[in-house]
Design a protein around this nucleic acid. Sequence first.
DNA 1: TTGCAGATGCAATTGAGTCGCAAATCAATT
DNA 2: AATTGATTTGCGACTCAATTGCATCTGCAA
Lengths: 150, 150
Amino acid sequence: MKPTYLTRIPAAEAHIRATGERLTQPRVAMLATLMTADHAISHLDAVDALAKHHPMDRVTVYRVLEWLVTMGIAHRIAGDDRVWRFMLTAAKPNGKANAQHLQHAHFTCNDCGQTFCLDEVSPKLPVKVPAGFKTIDVDLKLRGQCAHCA
Amino acid sequence: MKPTYLTRIPAAEAHIRATGERLTQPRVAMLATLMTADHAISHLDAVDALAKHHPMDRVTVYRVLEWLVTMGIAHRIAGDDRVWRFMLTAAKPNGKANAQHLQHAHFTCNDCGQTFCLDEVSPKLPVKVPAGFKTIDVDLKLRGQCAHCA
DNA sequence: TTGCAGATGCAATTGAGTCGCAAATCAATT
DNA sequence: AATTGATTTGCGACTCAATTGCATCTGCAA
């Protein structure tokens, strides 16, 4: 069954505390919200989801989301509608961010519009680039129908 | 050496005439401009580039670009800055759009910001998706340093 | 408890992209 | 060559995600 917001609070606090940065209510609430999502959520989705338990300013949502990205806790995905969507970066068992996650795939459903992470697809992409080009980051994006809509 | 705008006009006219749609000045100018670019250009880049030889309205640029995409002559790429960039779709020797081009890779340089097409990388991507998911379109995006900036 | 760097809220701004509508243009037909 | 009618273009106004500036508040350490 789906995890609820409230049950994620302690884990969210621990995760933020582990960064050594300031532990603030908006950060906890935002991270707990991300933890309950099984797909990438937009800034607006986040505002709506937070409205129930911990309403906060739109701009704060932007800034907290950006902070989570710079901390490596979340990553952002460019949607076809020019809207950023955010998702937790997969963590390794020890709690550290997964470096391999930098190179991974996303699947966006043409019907429902949801975006999912496909971690299992990614790490072994053999990508050849022309001479002189240096690859730092790889992003694989699929479009189609998700299991629910097909 | 780089192709110039003027030398591309005849080819652009021929290409548009081949679609069976109306041959208009903005379409010719836009296509000729795209033909001189070796990397993906934004809507604003296009407006600036056209200003010299064939100034046209911002909105017209958007619409012509969109028309070129629906015709399969160009394709659009979502940039990390939420800006669409456009590029000619590689044509096969017979002049028809290349269907395989639908599944291909882009390389964006972190330093100069230019985006290039890597047609040779793409077609044989073995992508596994979870059960029930149906892939229709694949987009591979690389980030790093291009040959010029490295 | 206090001090203050860093975080948040609010209002205003930016900038890519879109919409509606009147005027202009292309091309088919006379 | 002129007419006609459907498409396109230009212009203004608009939408909406995201950002910026600044005053206020808050977490944390001394």
